[in-house]
């Protein structure tokens, strides 16, 4: 990669930094009591929670840092934090 002029960059490059490696706790989306409200996706500071084909939500573990905000704020208490297995 040759340098840009003036230290500029186009979008998408931060995705090369897989922040999932930071995680010590992992959110498990159980899809049990989930009401598909989508709060978990809205409040994820990593933009790492996405709706799946069934309308439930899952974390992208490539980027999820395991902060636990989704589990804390889930009104249905359907997300469980467990220690990351490395």
């Amino acid at each position: 990669m040759t340098l840009s002029v003036g230290c500029t960059a186009r979008p998408g490059k931060s995705r090369e930094n897989r922040t999932g490696a930071w995680r010590t706790f992992k959110p498990n989306f159980k899809h049990d009591k989930c009401t598909k409200c989508g709060i978990c996706a809205l409040i994820c500071p990593e933009s790492a929670v996405h709706e799946n084909q069934d309308g439930f939500y899952d974390a992208d573990y490539n980027y999820c840092k395991g902060c636990g905000l989704c589990a804390e704020e889930c009104p249905a208490e359907d997300i469980e934090m467990t220690r990351e297995e490395k």
Binding site: P11, G12, S14, R15, E16, N17, R18, T19, W22, R23, G38, A41, L42, I43, C44, P45, E46, S47, A48, E51, D60, N62, Y63, K65, G66, C67, G68, L69
Partner: peptide
């Protein structure tokens, strides 16, 4: 559009960062 993502994954904010969440919103 709540599903529009213009603040990308892979940034280096602390886990649970208010700034990152706020900026995304």
């Amino acid at each position: 559009d709540k599903t529009l993502e213009l603040f990308d994954c892979g940034h280096r904010a602390c886990a649970g960062c208010g700034h990152a969440l706020g900026t995304r919103l």
